[in-house]
Simulated scan of single mutants.
Amino acid sequence: MLIALTGLLSPAEVGAIRDAAGKLEFGDGRATAGRRARAVKANDQALPSPARDAILEKARRALLAHPVFQAAARPEKLTPLLLSRYRVGQTYGLHVDDALMQGLRTDLSFTLFLSDPATYDGGALEIEDNYAPREIRLNAGDLILYPSTTLHRVTPVTRGERLAIVGWAQSFIRGQEQREVLFDLDQSIATLEQEGAQRVLLDRLSRARSNLLRLWAGA
C-alpha cells in the first residue's frame, strides 16, 4: 500500500527548510547505507549539527501529528531521519532497505519531498510492483509512505537538485495486510461519522477495530 500525504509541510515551512538546508554541510550518503546498498548509493546527506537536527525534528513532529500517517503506519517508533541531497549525476540504484536500522525493524519507509519538481529533472522515487515500476515525484511538502519490503531506487538527477527527508517506521502492527485492514476500517468509520451514521453501527465498527488491534499488535 502506497499512501501520499499532501501538504504535510506548508510552502512557507518548506521554503524555510530549504533556506536552512542551504547553509548545512553535507557528506557522502554511503556512510549510512547497508553493505549491499552502499554499492549503488551516490548522494549527499546533511552532517549532524543543531541546524540539521532542528529541520529533522520539525518534519518528525509534523509526521507524527498527521492522522493519515497514524492510521496507515500505526507507528511504534521512528528511526532517526535523514536529510538527503541529489545533485546532477547522483542516484540511488535498485535496493531494498535494511530490515533492521538503529535497533528497529523497518516496516515502512517514507520520503518527504522538499524540492519543487519543476526545478529538477530525474530524481524520481521508483518503486517496483508486480506489474511495472511506479515513478513518484511529489510536490514540495508532500510525503510518500510505502512498505520497506519493496525494491526501489532514485533515478539519476539530470538537472537541478533534489532535496528530501527520508526515514523508516517500526509499526505496532507487523503485517502489511493487517495494517491495510485497519486503515480501511479507520477510513470507513471516519466517513460514516461524517455522514451521521447510527451510533450503534459506529460502536460495533470501533469495537471490531479495537479488538483487531489487540489481536495483531506486536504480532
Rank of each mutant, 00 (worst) to 15 (best):
M1E: 08
L2G: 02
L5W: 08
L9K: 00
A12S: 12
G15D: 10
G15H: 10
G22E: 08
R30D: 02
T32L: 12
A37D: 11
D44I: 01
D44S: 12
P48C: 14
P48T: 14
S49A: 14
P50T: 13
A51R: 13
A51M: 08
A51Q: 14
A54G: 12
E57G: 09
R60T: 12
R61S: 08
L63W: 03
L64H: 04
A65F: 04
Q70K: 11
Q70M: 06
A73W: 01
A73C: 05
E76C: 05
T79Q: 03
T79I: 02
G89H: 11
G89S: 08
Y92K: 05
V96K: 13
V96D: 02
D98Y: 07
A99R: 15
L100Q: 15
S109F: 06
D121W: 04
L125G: 09
A132P: 00
R134P: 00
I136G: 03
I136P: 04
A140F: 12
L143H: 06
I144S: 09
I144E: 06
P147A: 08
T158M: 07
T158D: 05
T158I: 10
T158V: 10
R159V: 05
R162I: 01
A164P: 00
W168H: 01
Q170H: 06
I173A: 05
R174G: 02
Q176F: 05
L182V: 09
L182D: 03
F183V: 00
Q187I: 07
E195W: 11
G196Y: 05
L201P: 01
L205Q: 12
A208T: 15
L212K: 10
R214E: 14
L215S: 13
A217Y: 03
